[in-house]
Amino acid sequence: MPKSVSESGKTVDPSRNEGAYWAIMLLANFRRIGTKWQVKNIPSWPSGAPSRREFLRQKLTSIVAIYIILDVLSSGPPPDANVVGIRNQVLLLRIPELTSDELIFRVIAVTVYWINTYLFNLFMIEVASFVSVLTGITTPDQCRPLYGPIKEAWSIRQFWGTSWHQMFRRGIQGISDLANDAFFIPRGTLLSRYFRLTVSFAISGLIHFSADMSMRIPLAEAGSMAFFLAQPLGIMIEDAVQHVYKKQGIKFLRGYEHILGYVWLIAFQLWITPTWFYPPIRHMNPEKDGLLPFSLVSAIFS
Rank of each mutant, 00 (worst) to 15 (best):
S8E: 12
K10L: 13
D13E: 11
S15L: 14
S15M: 14
N17G: 09
N17H: 06
G19L: 11
A20T: 13
M25V: 07
L26M: 10
N29I: 00
F30N: 00
T35V: 14
P43Q: 07
S44C: 03
G48Y: 00
A49I: 01
I63E: 07
I63K: 01
A65Y: 10
Y67L: 06
Y67H: 15
I68N: 11
I69A: 10
V72F: 13
S75R: 08
P77G: 12
A81L: 14
V83S: 04
V84W: 01
I86S: 15
R87D: 09
N88E: 15
L91H: 10
I95C: 12
E97W: 14
L98S: 15
T99R: 14
I104P: 06
I104F: 11
I104L: 15
F105R: 05
F105L: 05
I108N: 13
T111S: 14
V112K: 08
W114P: 09
T117E: 08
T117Y: 06
S129T: 02
S132T: 15
L134D: 01
L134S: 08
L134V: 04
I137K: 02
T138Q: 13
T138I: 01
P140M: 06
R144K: 12
L146P: 00
W154H: 14
R157M: 04
Q158L: 07
Q158G: 15
T162E: 02
T162I: 12
Q166W: 00
M167N: 07
R169D: 00
I172P: 00
G174Q: 05
G174W: 03
G174V: 02
N180Q: 13
D181H: 10
A182V: 06
F183P: 00
F184A: 12
I185H: 03
P186D: 07
P186K: 11
G188M: 04
G188T: 08
T198P: 00
S200M: 03
A202V: 14
I203Y: 02
L206I: 11
F209D: 03
F209I: 03
S210C: 07
M213C: 08
M213P: 00
S214R: 08
M215H: 14
M215Q: 14
M215D: 08
P218F: 07
L219C: 09
L219R: 10
A220R: 10
E221M: 07
A222Y: 04
G223H: 01
M225Y: 05
M225T: 10
F227V: 03
F228Q: 01
L233V: 13
M236H: 04
I237R: 07
V241C: 09
Q242K: 07
Y245D: 12
K247Q: 09
G249A: 05
K251L: 04
F252V: 12
Y256L: 11
E257Y: 03
H258V: 07
V263R: 10
V263A: 13
F268R: 02
W271V: 05
I272D: 00
I272A: 02
P274K: 03
P274H: 06
P286F: 08
G290K: 11
L291P: 01
S295D: 08
S298T: 11
A299V: 04
